[in-house]
Design a protein around this nucleic acid. Structure first.
Lengths: 199, 199
DNA sequence: CGTCTGCTTGATGAGGCTCAAGATCAGTGG
DNA sequence: CCACTGATCTTGAGCCTCATCAAGCAGACG
């Protein structure tokens, strides 16, 4: 945890540097005002506020832009929370307004991401969890997962079911626990890519 | 396929007028090039092409912009098909490039729609179908539904399950069949709003 | 040490899937 | 108008996946 750890949602003093959030930290709340952000790393959960509860609405990962509705309406339309450690950069960079191309790119990315999230909520339970792992894995074959309950919210399963599936993937040697300093031991894995493809 | 070929083969009279598609008609295919469109009325299904099959990716209804990725990449990223009779207008209107505000608005709308579609794939079967009906109903309390199979793809249920649920809503007098000329008799309903709210 | 949060695991059963048969609907041609 | 045809919708019976409930375990932290 360094200079820009902001699990409480406060804004950094230097507005053009990236900000880091710890797992579970709230990034912004629906109805409040603030900047739009580009995700540099990590996984962010967007929720639509329901009657008292938070309904999972979407996922944002590296490259996605979140909170841009505040540029149009003045306030955020979702709650955003960090599921893993993540870094955000104010968006757009260097200008007060985004260019047309930049916006178009964000729109296309948002639609692609939405399609992926929709796919995570269909088909068998095992497939859903495996597809989420694929989405969150980095190129080097390691992955830091959100909590079981968050995975359950994303995939519309129960956390017990998610736990059983991940444990099964461990036993089948598709996932191998990989200790990363500061990350809960049950959430960081190295992936057997061949095994994952075979599932 | 030409830009203005309608599902029934007719051509529109002028290029800036809206174009109509019949239920089941293909609007565009992934990889082909063409304009972006704003949906004026009706329901459109976007699919991500999989291995031979079409995986449901998202839904577009009145007000949504579809196909804008072609403005950036030159080709469409999804297959689009009409689920009910629908009208499209080339987008942006009157200009060669959309304004920043127009794009921002489309981005915000897309994210809101994505959250709604995600919600349609979680919770109990009855809730999912009822929420889809709410989404598609017009202000006057009538609704034209897609085919059972398309509803099943959207909600990640089986078409038999969807059929049972809609029939149950009819028996509970939440939905009343409403004959509309040219629409399949099993897809057009008037809604008992009080009954629907009570489900 | 106790407490709290998150994870694992077992037993049980209900909701929705599967398979199968028939009914209805819309279009076509006699 | 009617018969025919293919597509769509309805309904039943049986079964399986996953939800539910419950108990215990593992780390983190004061």
């Amino acid at each position: 945890m360094g200079l820009f750890v902001l699990a409480d949602g406060k804004q950094p003093s230097a507005s053009r540097t990236s900000c880091t959030y710890a797992p579970g930290g709230s990034i912004y709340q629906v109805g409040s005002d603030g900047l739009a952000w580009r995700v540099q790393s990590g996984v962010i959960r967007l929720d639509a506020p329901g009657a008292g509860d938070n309904r999972f609405a979407s996922l944002a990962i590296a490259g996605d832009v979140i909170g841009c509705e505040s540029m149009l309406f003045g306030t955020y339309a979702f709650n955003a929370a960090a599921l893993t450690q993540c870094q955000l950069l104010p968006w757009p960079e260097g200008e007060s307004m985004p260019t047309g191309d930049s916006l178009l790119y964000s729109l296309a990315t948002a639609q692609k991401r939405a399609a992926e999230v929709v796919a995570l909520r269909g088909g068998e339970a095992l497939t859903r969890v495996v597809n989420l792992i694929r989405l969150l894995a980095d190129a080097s074959g390691s992955v830091v997962l959100p909590m079981r309950q968050d995975i359950a919210d994303i995939t519309d399963l129960r956390f017990e079911t998610v736990s059983r599936i991940i444990k099964r993937l461990e036993r089948d040697e598709v996932l191998a626990p990989a200790k990363i300093c500061g990350v809960h031991a049950t959430r960081s894995f190295s992936i057997n890519m061949v095994g994952l493809a075979a599932v």
